Simulated scan of single mutants.
Amino acid sequence: MKTTRNRMAAALAATLALTAMPAAALEPLSQERYINDRLIAARIADRIRRECPSIDARMIYAWSQARALKKYARGKGYSDAQIEAFLDSRPDKDRIYGVAEDYMARNGVTKGDAESYCRLGRDEIAGKTVTGSLLSAK
């Protein structure tokens, strides 16, 4: 009886040892795709609303989406300090802005041409993209 208990205890301990994996390290926020994609979309929407006189931002909705994105990051295990450091990081801002500018250029936006921003904005709204959801045609 004692031997059976010892074997069961040993088997249980072995099973627990094999299944007890250390918590996975979080990838850097700069590599978290969902978060970065939404920040890029927000940057594109911001550029469109600033350059196109016939499109506005849905500011309350954008603000609520920003809060939801922060909640998402916390839910993934990122601390407030990590989130703030990422959002304040000049290299990360520059990277996000660069991706946004590249996207706009690939989609026909020309600096100084308000209508090219308006056209992209209308396309984003019509396509019901993340960017489009942050915009409203006047």
Results as ranks from 00 to 15, higher is better:
M1S: 08
Y34E: 14
Y61A: 15
P91Y: 05
N107I: 00
A137N: 01
T129C: 03
R33A: 10
Y78V: 03
D88Y: 12
Y103P: 02
L16P: 08
N36E: 05
Y103L: 11
A66N: 11
I83K: 08
L135D: 05
L29I: 12
I60K: 15
N6Q: 05
L134R: 09
A105E: 12
G108F: 06
V109G: 03
R74W: 04
F86C: 09
S89F: 11
R122T: 02
R33M: 06
R7P: 12
L134M: 13
K71V: 00
I44Q: 03
Q31C: 08
A11N: 14
W63Q: 12
K2Y: 08
E124Y: 04
Y78R: 03
K138G: 04
N6L: 04
I35D: 06
A42H: 01
A114K: 02
R106S: 10
M59T: 15
I60G: 15
A23R: 12
L135C: 05
R33H: 08
S30M: 04
M59Y: 15
R50G: 02
R50I: 08
R90E: 12
C52F: 09
R33S: 10
A68L: 11
D56V: 05
Y72T: 07
C118F: 09
N6M: 04
S89V: 12
L87M: 07
G75E: 02
G132V: 06
S30K: 02
L16A: 13
L12F: 11
V99Q: 09
T110Q: 14
G108K: 07
A13T: 08
Y97M: 01
D113A: 00
Y34L: 13
R58C: 00
I48S: 00
A85C: 13
Y78E: 02
D94F: 06
A20H: 13
G77D: 09
D94S: 07
G132E: 06
P22S: 10
K93Q: 14
T131Y: 01
D46T: 13
R49A: 07
T3C: 09
